[in-house]
Every structure is written in C-alpha cells, then in structure tokens.
C-alpha cells in the first residue's frame, strides 16, 4: 500500500468551483440551445507527490475535468491552478511550462498513438516540440524504463499489443520529465492479465521519479491499488473526497456506498449474490 501523504506538502493542482457546459445544437427557434452540464462546480486539491484518484461512472465528467486540468479545453467558469499558475484563461502561447510539467496517458491504446509514426518519433514528439535535444539515447532510456526493448523504436504502433502500446504512451508522457502525470483510465482498455503489470509500472515510475499522479478510473479496485486519496464523482460533481482506505471502509455518500457495494468479492460470490442483489442493496443503502 502507498503511504499516506504529508498534508503540509505544497499544492500541485487546485481546482476551484469549475464549471463546464457544452452547448448542444438548437432544437427550437424560440428557445435557447440546450446545454449539457458536464461539470457543476468541482473543487479539489492535489498535493505535490500525492497519488490522487478520481472515480465515477462513464459520463460523470471525469474526462472533462482532466482536459480542463491539462488546458486542452476551456472552462465555462471557475479556476484551475497548476503549480501556482492560474491556467484557466491563459492563451496557448503561455502554457509552455504546463506543457512541460504535466503530461497525460490516455485510455485507448489504439487511438492514443499515431498509426503513421514510428514509436521512436512518437516518444520524441514532446521533446522535439519543446525544443529539447531528442537524442536516440533518451528515447532508448525511456523505452527501457517502461520495459520495452530498444529496437521497439523502429516499429509502428500496430505491431504492438495493447499493454505494450500503453507502455509506449507512458514513455511518451515521461519524455519531457514532467512533475505531474495524469492518467485517464490507463488500464480499462487492457486485458485483465496485463492490467496489473501496467498499474505496477505506473506505480513504480511515480515513486522513482517523484511524480504527482492524478489517476482516473471507473474501477474502484484499481484506484484502491494505486492511490492515496480519492474523489468520487457523480453527475458532474464531487460527492466525496477522502483517504482511499477511509472511503472504502466507511463510504459516506449514498453513491459511494453503491459503488463500494458493487465491488465483486469472493465472499459475496460464494454466498450466491447476483447483480440484482447488488443493485437492491445499493439502493436501500
């Protein structure tokens, strides 16, 4: 288990009352266009060196939140402060330090690597863009760090398995030596057999390189495995935040209780529980 982090540590990411509405196409001439409220006032704080988990079902706004933290999308209102810089309304040209310090690993290992580029060029891309010397040496180092052979650089992404592609993705994210790593469901598209490997790799690298990790998943057990603290999201809001162990042991919010009760365990399976039981229990809780 990761050790509980020092609450006095400086803040890496602070999100204040963040709102993101997506306008939808008009359905009537007379009424204003309907909006999808993806985030409804989210606030959270991630300490430096912390492993912070965000859990919630699909469509609850997790990915929107990540995109706003990475300045890949514009907030409707609210603030995102990364390492003491308010990035919410900064123009792209002033985001250079964010682009160097914060990197992402995406969910789908099929679509997160350009099929037309060699692995070498994919990993070197952040280096080239940010004007660092993109030496073959550094690329080999990174490949080695994620457990791939050095000759992998000459091949194309489709020649690798899902787990290997996710390793390439991680190597690319680590290339500019970021201080913050954001992982958006990095293992949910992988076979169960390679999930643990990739999770352990992320976990080890975060320790080794002293990174701040924001880890998003819909799977509570995965978050439990990796994170110190966790925020539970539902319908664009954070309903509960706390140390992972506490949230698991004594979930406060009804939604969290339902999530926790839905984790499959051996005991429950042996006692003959079915999905229907889980739902009923969650609702009554």
């Amino acid at each position: 288990m990761p050790d509980i982090h020092d609450p006095e540590a400086p803040t890496a990411i602070r999100v204040v009352d963040l709102v993101r509405d997506y306008p939808r196409p008009r359905t009537s001439l007379l009424q204003p266009a309907p909006v999808v409220r993806a985030l409804r006032g989210v606030s959270l704080e991630v300490k430096q060196g912390e492993r912070f988990g965000i859990v919630g079902e699909s469509g609850c706004g997790k990915s929107t939140l990540l995109r706003l933290i990475a300045a890949l999308d514009r907030a409707t209102s609210g603030h995102v402060i990364v390492e003491d810089t308010d990035i919410t309304r900064l123009p792209e040209c002033r985001l250079r330090s964010l682009r160097e310090n914060l990197q992402l690993v995406f969910q789908d290992p099929m679509s997160s690597l350009d099929p037309r580029m060699r692995v070498r060029d994919i990993i070197a891309e952040p280096l080239v863009v940010q004007g660092h010397p993109a030496s073959g040496q550094r690329v080999r180092e990174l490949l080695e760090a994620v457990g791939l052979s050095a000759d992998a650089g000459d091949r194309y992404p489709h020649q690798f398995s899902g787990g290997q592609r996710q390793r390439i993705s991680i190597a690319r994210a680590l290339a500019p030596r970021p201080r913050i790593l954001i992982a958006d469901e990095p293992v949910s598209a992988l076979d169960v057999s390679v999930r643990a490997q990739v999770l352990n790799l992320i976990s080890d690298l975060v320790d080794e390189l002293n990174l701040t990790l924001v880890f998003v998943s819909h799977d509570l057990s995965v978050v439990k495995h990796v994170c110190d603290r966790v925020a539970v999201m539902n319908a664009g809001q954070i309903v509960e935040t706390g140390y992972t162990g506490d949230v698991y042991a004594a979930p406060q919010h009804p939604y969290t209780q339902r999530l926790v009760s839905a984790i499959p365990t051996l005991q429950r399976a042996l006692s003959g529980a079915t999905t229907a039981d889980l739902l009923a229990k969650g609702e009554s809780a």
Binding site: R99, Q103, L104, F106, S111, S112, I122, E125, Q130, R172
Partner: peptide, 13 residues
C-alpha cells in the same frame, strides 16, 4: 483521436 490530444498536451501548435 487521443494522439492529437497528446500532441496538444505536448505543446504542438
């Protein structure tokens, strides 16, 4: 695609 997102996150214009 996510590789374009990744390129943007790396700072590509």
């Amino acid at each position: 695609t996510e590789y374009v997102l990744a390129a943007r996150a790396a700072g590509r214009q």
